[in-house]
Design a protein around this nucleic acid. Structure first.
Length: 121
RNA sequence: GGAGUGGGUGGGGUGAUCGCUCACGACGCCUCGUGGCUUUUGGCCCCGGGGCGACGGGGGAGGAAAGUCCGGGCUUCACAGGGCGGGAUGGUCGAUAACGUCGACCGGCCGUGAGGUUAGGGAAAGUGCAACAGAGAGUAGACCGCCGAACGGUCACGCCCCUCGGGGCUGACGCGUGGUAAGGGUGAAACGGUGCGGUAAGAGCGCACCAGCGGCCGGGGUGACCCGGUCGGCUCGGUAAACCCCAUCCGAAGCUAGACCAAACAGGGUGCAUGGUCGGGCGGCGCCGUGAGGUGAUCGCUCAACCGCGAAGUGGCCCGCUUCGCUAUCGACAUCCGGGUAGGUCGCUCGAGGCGACGGGCAACCGUCGUCCCAGACAAAUGGUCACCGGCGACGUUUUUUCAAACGUCGUCACAGAACCCGGCUUAUAAACCCACUCCCGAU
RNA sequence: CGGGGCGUGGCGCAGCCUGGUAGCGCGACUGGUUUGGGACCAGUAGGUCGCAGGUUCGAAUCCUGUCGCCCCGA
């Protein structure tokens, strides 16, 4: 049962800036993913950010829904204990299949990068 | 059949499944409060509030939700009033909560027509503007042309007079002064048009008709205005989306409005003041005097002069007014500067509401009755997948003389996302469909 | 939610208030100079003034609407 309710989301503006400033990131043709460990070890929290440059309100809403749905479907395949912030790659043209394929792999790459950073510290 | 005008509908559908969000219902757990019981720290019960979890059956984007161009509701602040300034609007009547919106009508312009379009008050209140061209651009003007009536000049081998210097008459010239606005030419625009008279030539200079303007009268219309008559001077140009004038309207800011709770931080400045001085008048009070009266760092009112006239508000300015204040200090308060916070609850969706019927009105719209409840998020909910159906397009196969039809595969189905709520305007928009009307051609 | 600005040759700007001629620099092209290039000199071309209406005799300029871009404030 893959749900996605309010507790699974990143809501506060401070959290967003902390994750983007302080974590690791990875990207491919479609998505840019920022990652930072949270305290919980098991849960994954998602934040979505869509710049105005992306397009009209309809286009931005579509991206957000696609990313959210991709997160919900692929929850088992994501690394745990992380807060992740996802945004569309600049100028990328998306569809749901591409996003659903891209999100888990990009998130795992970002998580590995975060591990290396923490070990080197 | 062709061409066109005006307006409207519409915004893919059904099902399965996994999710999101909101309120409701019943359940479990946690917690808070009043009360009760048992009272040993404590435990139990009733009622109410809050939170979390899972369940059930429901609601869940638009005609433009958009742009934010107008107008309102609502909220907070301000407000006795007046003047100046600023902004908006601009035919009439109506509709409306209101509007810069809508309806009907009037006038202008465009179109053969259905219709379209129109910031459409004032230019005899004033100021300004009009490049180039042209003679001249505003109570204008004489370049070419026309004229030779008037004044001057020149000429005459024309006539007359004479004091022999000359003078006058007549004619010519068009040289100067001048007349002319008909014709040419310039321009977007040059102070009406046609005809006759008139004149040196001309001219509204005069007359007739026409156009325009203005006054008056009659008729129609609520009105804008229309129709008819009559008179007048004969003509008085354009531009106000140039300044301006006139009429009407307009307090400001916005749901981060605004109210409350929690958390956090760092305070500081200003005001808290009020009328003063001198003089006159009137009255009170104290003292003096038997009394008229006199006198006073005294009180109140009032007059004149001079100085002064705080802060805030009154949208900017001014007058005026209002509020605060009355010994000092502190506090409170007001205001300004600075600092902290970006969490929660309310506002928050039932409304100038939708739909239907009837009635009133040409219509915009209004009234009555019935009926319905239709999103409330806050890093912000309506999405993902699959199947079938529908519209459109391409290709293939089959049927068919052709038009076309059937089946299959693939593609495609717009513009666009609520954020306090309404009324409009504007802009975007794939098909598909409907209604009314006009013109032309053909047939009957 | 509130406020402000911009749109003119290929690029960067002026002209707009106060209507009539669209100008400047860089760049482009042609010719000269040079052995050749650069620099320099001379000349040439190139603009629906974002778009659509309106006012006016006449609009880049005035008015209205509209489209796009940028920047502030809360």
């Amino acid at each position: 049962m893959n749900r996605f309710s309010k507790r699974d989301r990143i809501v506060r503006g401070d959290d967003f800036t902390a994750i983007i400033r302080g974590g690791a990131f990875a990207a491919d043709d479609v998505l840019v993913v920022n990652v930072r460990s949270n305290d919980s070890e098991t849960s994954v929290r998602l934040g979505i950010t869509i710049p105005k440059k992306t397009g009209s309100a309809v286009v931005r809403n579509r991206w957000k829904r696609w990313i959210r749905e991709a997160f919900r479907i692929n929850r088992d395949r994501l690394p745990t204990g992380l807060d992740i912030v996802v945004r569309p790659k600049r100028d990328a043209v998306g569809n749901f299949a591409k996003i659903a394929k891209s999100l888990p792999s990009t998130a795992r790459r970002a998580a590995r990068k975060l591990d290396r950073q923490e070990q080197s510290d």
